[in-house]
């Protein structure tokens, strides 16, 4: 067990139901500060649902019910006193396919700052530039910041979404198969970004791709039918899995 102050996110006895379906079954795990953790599993195993419980994205889903606790910095985010807007400011999220807003490149990144009440124009300009640089996109877009985000290629759009996710200076990044729809070159750029980003963020990634996961993970977990089968340091997870089912998965038998 890691020391308390090393733990960024801790999940205790988490159960998630949608209607009659029991989608997540008694999940217990923790994520260490400034580490990259990948969650693997076949389609429909609950890994994306799990990711969405970490920033309460299921709040608006009708018929969804959750029990258990998700502690971020020791505080249960499902506590009644938690402000969801503030919670999400602290958690950036990147999705399966690039989903820029129907706005300019600049406004896409400024969006998060604006909805959190930041009006200082200089600060926003500076922050937009910084985030684009972090995401390795600045040089490609600096001359067309006020053009539509849809004018970018898929890989660029995804990096724009990463820049957007870090604009509000979160401490956690959630990524739901961020390279799923990208060509190998664009995917590789994003994987490199993830590796450099762990200096600043605790990163939790849902992935289909065992190779990619092996390349970037510090920790890995395996989900199957809503259960967390195994969770371990990446070294052990990928070379000496304890559970037969994990082994079958990473040797591609699912």
């Amino acid at each position: 067990m890691a020391e308390q102050n090393e733990i960024k996110v801790e999940v205790k006895n988490l159960n998630f139901y949608y209607g009659n379906y029991h989608l997540l079954k008694n999940i217990n795990l923790y994520f260490k500060r400034n580490s990259v953790c990948t969650l693997l599993g076949p389609s429909g195993c609950g890994k994306s649902t799990f990711l969405r419980t970490l920033n309460r994205m299921n709040d608006y889903t009708e018929g969804a019910k959750l029990t258990g606790e998700v502690l971020i910095d020791g505080k249960n985010i499902y506590d009644k006193s938690v402000d969801v807007v503030e919670l999400r400011r602290n958690i950036g999220m990147v999705f399966q396919s690039p989903n820029p807003f129907p706005k300019s490149i600049f406004d896409n990144i400024a969006f998060g700052l604006k909805i959190h009440g930041i009006k200082n124009r200089e600060f926003i300009v500076e922050r937009v530039e910084k985030c684009l640089k972090y995401a390795g996109l600045y040089d490609e877009v600096k001359d067309k910041l006020h053009k539509s985000a849809f004018s970018l290629s898929g890989g660029q759009q995804q990096r724009l979404c990463i820049a957007r996710a870090i604009a509000t200076n979160p401490s956690i990044l959630l990524m739901d198969e961020p390279t799923a729809y990208l060509d190998p070159a664009s995917a590789s750029i994003i994987l490199d970004l993830i590796t450099t980003f762990k200096k600043y963020y605790t990163i939790i990634i849902v992935s289909h791709n065992i190779q990619q996961a092996g390349r970037i993970s510090d920790y890995s977990g395996f989900f199957l039918d809503g259960e967390l089968i195994e969770f371990d340091e990446a070294g052990n997870f990928f070379t000496r899995p304890k559970d037969k089912r994990t082994e079958n998965f990473i040797t591609s038998r699912y």
Binding site: R88, M93, F95, N99, F101, P102, F111, G112, I115, A165
Partner: peptide
């Protein structure tokens, strides 16, 4: 997914 993107940023 476009709406989720905004919700995840804390948009109302």
């Amino acid at each position: 997914i476009a709406k989720d993107g905004a919700l995840a940023m804390g948009a109302t």
